[in-house]
Simulated scan of single mutants.
Amino acid sequence: MARLATTTLLILGAALCGHAASALGAPLPYMLGPLALTALVATLIPHRLPEGYLFPPALRLTFIAVIGLMIGAQVTPALFDNAGRLGVSAAALALFVVVAMAVNYAIFRRLGGYDPATAFYAGAPGGLYESIAMGEATDADLPRLMLQQFMRIILVVTALPVGLSLWLGGPVGSSAGLSFAGGAVPWQALPWLVIAGAAGLALGRALRLPAGQITGPMAVAAALSLSGLGHLDVPQWLVNAAQVVIGAALGMRFTGIGPAMILRGAGLSVLSVSTMLLLAAGIATLLRPALGEHFDVLLISFAPGGVTEMALIALSLEANPAFVTLHHILRILITVLGIGLSGRVLKRRL
């Protein structure tokens, strides 16, 4: 009972923090707000938790599938209208991922002093959940790995919207009240979401997909959308609930991380993220004539932030959100496949 009561209190507190962060206009409020709360609990008062307490993994897994369904539902035929332009972008994204991982590995390995597995997965420029899951399986230093991956997300989704908001003179992204979730989704649609999520989890497990808990549901939702069999609309309240649970669960994994580690990780992340944003800006400048898009649209297409937040920024700019979404889905897929294949080699060597 003590564990159930603890989980309930953590989720309720996380939901309140998410609502407060949303009211303040913070990016990814329903994930970063809960994450901040539970990370503070895990680092400052872990002795208040039941002995050996772990956030229920089945609960986290269920809501990760919800995010996978939402992302997969954005894969529509319109994303593939210009195959030639897509090929150029895919090649540029592959180059971005390779260069970013090489630079990040050097930063975390040489400057941070991390072990090879931790430096490798901490340097992944995408696939937040995937890199954490694969790193855990390779016995990476999970607190440091999580710290660097979350710092990447926090810095990108904070700095980019704020910078663009100052440049454009108005709010962009989720702070502008925009969302990709379905608005008035009828309750009758919820059983189909449950079926699709369960099928996606089973698919990811059966095919041993990298981070199948999210890529499996993504694949099912994308297949339904592209085939014309149906489109899954995920209601906003369910997306918010998923982010609250995921943020709360991941924040609890910061147990054992002290202020000194956080400050050191923040310094390494500033260097890493700055390098990746400069790389993204350089690629955006080079690709602008070939792709016929504005620099700011290409910049957010290559920025190593969250899929939803980057696409919402594009929506704020009255750009093509499908174009931006596709780039980030491709970046995540390239990164996940890359670290999945390379990680197996790394695991054997270690």
Rank of each mutant, 00 (worst) to 15 (best):
G126F: 01
A73H: 13
V99A: 10
A73V: 09
T62M: 14
M134P: 01
R109S: 15
G87T: 04
I132N: 00
F63N: 03
R110H: 14
P125A: 01
M70F: 04
L155H: 09
G87D: 06
A119E: 11
A90I: 12
G87F: 07
L155R: 04
G113V: 10
L147P: 04
A124I: 02
V98L: 15
A92L: 08
F108V: 06
G113E: 13
L69F: 09
L111A: 14
A100W: 02
L155V: 13
L155G: 05
S89W: 09
Y114G: 04
P77G: 11
L95P: 06
F150T: 06
A119F: 11
L86Q: 14
V99W: 05
T76F: 10
F108D: 07
V66F: 03
G126Y: 03
I64F: 00
R144H: 14
L86N: 14
G87A: 11
G163M: 12
V103D: 03
N82M: 05
P116R: 07
E136N: 04
N104H: 11
D141I: 05
L142W: 02
L128K: 01
V162M: 14
L69V: 12
I107V: 15
S131E: 01
F96N: 05
A90W: 09
Y121A: 02
A92P: 04
M101C: 07
I71P: 06
L79M: 14
V99M: 08
T62E: 09
G123Q: 02
R85F: 08
I71Q: 07
A137I: 03
S131G: 01
A122P: 12
L145Q: 05
M151S: 14
V98M: 12
I64K: 02
F63Q: 03
P125F: 03
N104C: 12
G112W: 12
A124P: 02
L145C: 03
V103C: 04
G135K: 02
V162I: 15
G84F: 03
A133P: 00
G163F: 11
G163W: 08
A90E: 05
L128N: 03
L142T: 09
R110K: 14
A73W: 10
L111S: 11
A94L: 15
R110P: 04
V98F: 11
F63A: 02
A133E: 05
G113S: 10
R110W: 12
V103F: 10
T62H: 06
L111R: 13
N82P: 01
A133M: 09
Y114C: 11
G135S: 01
Y129C: 00
R144S: 13
P143M: 12
T62R: 11
A90K: 04
